[in-house]
Simulated assay, not measured.
Amino acid sequence: MKKSVTKAPLTTSSSRFTPNKKFHRALLKPMASTTFSLSLSTLASSTAYNSGNHIPTISCKSNEKSSLCLSSSSFLGSRLNVSRRTSSANPMSMRNVRIACSASVLLSALLFDCDGVLVDTEKDGHRISFNDTFKEKELGVTWDVDLYGELLKIGGGKERMTAYFNKTGWPEKAPSDEEERKQFIASLHKLKTELFMALIEKKLLPLRPGVAKLIDQALEKGVKVAVCSTSNEKAVTAIVSFLLGPERAEKIQIFAGDVVPRKKPDPAIYTLAASTLGVDPSSCVVVEDSTIGLAAAKAAGMKCIVTKSSYTAEEDFLNADAVFDCIGDPPEERFDLAFCGSLLQKQYVS
């Protein structure tokens, strides 16, 4: 029979606590050795959020003979470790219980993809800049909307052009030597980046709804914020600086372009971000807009929220932790920082 306790007197400043009688009786049950590790965060969904007291109830798994349920507002932002060892011959006493609590912020970092997440840049930003580059270099190449949508399955602009030319044939002006072709692609991408940055500096492409709001919430709560993108670092920096403003930009770390040798869906860029920021991947939430970005985030061991963009609306996001059309600003807000934090709860209940 399951026992439950509410409001057990627990504090985060000490590794000891005094259980009430009800809690004591719940533990006086024979069972095999069991270890629990729990971390709780503020709940934010409409079905699991008490706006008055913010009191979560978490049930932890045990063997079929018994289970332990804990509920207390004092658990918020804390990690609770419970170890207990008993045998059927020796009923459990409080000497067998070790409980350690440490105050911790569950959500350590909020990581954003850039294109399609911060700004819906692909169709009327990057694609236009690629086409202007091809036109200026007289390559006789044009990427229409549908073709570019297919090319977006390849992470990275240089990689995208290389794959396209390998499939359709290289322009006459392109060199035949493989190393020289790499330099040729690099020069095209440099020009494309300059043209794209000009669009951003003119603020012709706006931030997506809710982006600034969510970043402000994270920075206010001390949550680290970074942008992790396969796009050129200068282009990403321009978006962050010109559209989010210098005050936010100086607090946001950027990981972009060739900072890692393997692009998304490889998790390298998210793994690097977590390592550099000094946070555990399991305490990070990523906001992505594509299946390759989702795959990279999940492979890095992170939670991932998808905000669909114009090119990714029909993609399969089955593995995402949540999917929305955008982040959204009030009164059309879809989610906030508290919701991001709530996604981390379940992984700590074992």
Rank of each mutant, 00 (worst) to 15 (best):
D336V: 00
I327Q: 04
L80C: 08
R208K: 12
T86E: 02
A249L: 00
D258K: 10
G328Q: 06
K29A: 01
P30K: 00
L219G: 02
A297I: 08
I128S: 02
D258Y: 05
L244T: 11
T291V: 11
E122D: 10
T162D: 14
S102W: 09
S129N: 04
E333Y: 06
S102G: 04
Q253C: 12
N63M: 01
L76P: 02
G155Y: 06
D113V: 06
S14T: 11
I252Y: 15
E220I: 05
K263N: 09
K3Q: 04
I252E: 13
E333Q: 14
K158V: 04
E136S: 13
L188A: 04
R79S: 12
L76Q: 13
N96H: 11
E64D: 07
S350E: 12
T193L: 02
D289A: 05
R248I: 12
T230P: 04
S309I: 07
L243A: 10
L151C: 02
S310V: 13
T35Y: 13
K135Y: 11
D329T: 02
D325I: 02
P9C: 07
G293V: 04
V211L: 10
I305W: 11
M1N: 03
S282H: 08
D258A: 10
G245K: 06
L294W: 07
N81E: 09
D258T: 06
A256V: 05
S176E: 12
G140M: 11
D325S: 12
E332F: 12
S310W: 06
D144M: 02
L110I: 08
L76S: 08
S108W: 03
M94D: 04
E180Y: 02
S282W: 05
K2F: 03
A235I: 03
L294Y: 05
L43K: 15
L118V: 01
D321W: 07
M197I: 11
A198Y: 08
S33K: 02
T230C: 12
A174M: 13
R79P: 01
V119Y: 07
S310T: 13
S350T: 10
E233G: 04
D146S: 04
S275W: 07
R262T: 06
F196C: 01
I254W: 09
Q253D: 14
G169V: 14
S71N: 01
K29H: 03
R208W: 00
A256H: 10
A226H: 10
V141H: 09
L68I: 12
K153D: 11
I185F: 08
P331N: 07
N232D: 15
A322G: 09
N20R: 11
H54K: 15
E201Q: 07
G222V: 05
E138C: 09
K221Q: 15
C284N: 14
F75V: 06
D216I: 09
S78C: 13
C284V: 15
G140Q: 11
A48W: 15
S102T: 09
N81Q: 09
A174L: 14
L28H: 01
K153E: 10
G278D: 01
K298C: 13
D146C: 00
T6K: 06
K135T: 09
N131P: 03
K22T: 04
E122P: 05
A109I: 11
V260R: 05
Y49P: 07
L68K: 00
D124N: 05
S350R: 13
S309T: 08
A249N: 00
L343N: 02
F184Y: 15
A8W: 14
K167E: 15
G155W: 04
K251Q: 15
I55N: 04
E122G: 05
Y148R: 01
L111M: 15
A249D: 00
K29Y: 02
